[in-house]
Design a binder for these strands. Structure first.
Lengths: 180, 180
DNA sequence: TAGACTAGAGAACGAACGTTCTCCCGCGCA
DNA sequence: TGCGCGGGAGAACGTTCGTTCTCTAGTCTA
């Protein structure tokens, strides 16, 4: 049984991801969540706080899903490439519209410090995870950095073109970098 | 002597890039351009059309600047890496806030088909240019694809972290890919 | 010079926004 | 049963938006 917060953040995540932040009104959030406006404002102070809470929750879930897949491979040397396998399935999900954090940063990075911070923290955590995985596989920190760039590049490219195969190309490049 | 269109698109480019699309009102555009509202609506049908015209003009200028730098090197084999040299200087410009097209797509990609098209076309043209340069340098199409991903990854990462050194890391990875 | 047209400055408009307020129903307790 | 209170539904508020309209001053032509 989902809590009110779950219901609200589910609605916010879906709508903000689909349409962006400013294009979604509080009324749409109310209708999609089934919660009265009063309850929404009691749970969070306002629209910005909802977006930040949504991004934070999504951050946990997203990195969990990535780690669950990448760490599933018993061989540490295979794990960096497993990141891109998971990425491809994620890019191919219905309604995929790029990286929620990149999108949020593009729209609100300069006007909402709280959201800008949430994005920076998420991206830093992902880079850190990639670095751990790559170095455990015997890669250098420089290789880890490159693989993070490939990851970001594949997400943004697939988001715009709609073609999940960017993940396969990124995987191929990552494999080359790991071997050299 | 700049035309009214130049004045308007200069203002639009500066303001939209700094704050995003929806955060900039027509009044701000009027004030920054020095043009009466009536003239603005006579030049373009509305706000969306201004954004599209701005992106199109920026596309020409951006790709010209990139090509001017990358094609300056007389040795075709060096040109793919020259892309990243130029990228680093661009990422280091004052007020850099990531890729204008990625930002626009994140905010408006799902609500404004005209803007989504402008972004897709720009990205396709850049990918095509990179492919030409890389293949002229002896790289494979697969390598060209990877280098485009590194380019996108560096732009988005530098935009969020504010650190232009992402271009150097991308350059290093590109060099490795070109050698293998 | 007289008149018609252009274009500038900004008021005005209707819609939509985030947020708050009002009203009232229904439950818990004495 | 009577009373009080928390919370639901949605109207209302003030603001801001994109766009259009009004009024006026200037300019070109016959």
């Amino acid at each position: 049984m989902p809590t009110d917060q779950d219901r609200l953040l589910d609605a916010a995540e879906k709508l903000f991801y689909e349409r962006g932040y400013q294009a979604v009104g509080m009324d749409a959030l109310r209708e999609a969540s089934g919660l009265p406006l009063k309850r929404i404002y009691a749970l969070y102070g306002g629209k910005d706080a909802i977006a930040v809470a949504m991004l934070d929750r999504r951050d946990l879930r997203w990195r969990h899903a990535l780690a669950a897949h990448a760490s599933h491979d018993p061989e540490p040397a295979h794990r960096p490439l497993a990141i891109f396998d998971w990425l491809e399935t994620w890019l191919a999900t219905d309604g995929h519209r790029g990286c929620a954090w990149i999108n949020a940063y593009g729209e609100l990075g300069s006007t909402s410090p709280a959201i800008a911070d949430a994005v920076r923290e998420h991206k830093a955590r992902v880079r850190e995870y990639v670095a751990d995985i790559v170095e455990a596989a015997g890669g250098t920190p420089e290789t880890a950095h490159s693989i993070s760039l490939l990851l970001e590049g594949a997400m943004v490219t697939a988001g715009i073109t709609g073609d999940p195969s960017a993940a396969r190309h990124a995987r191929h490049a990552a494999a080359t970098l790991l071997q050299s």
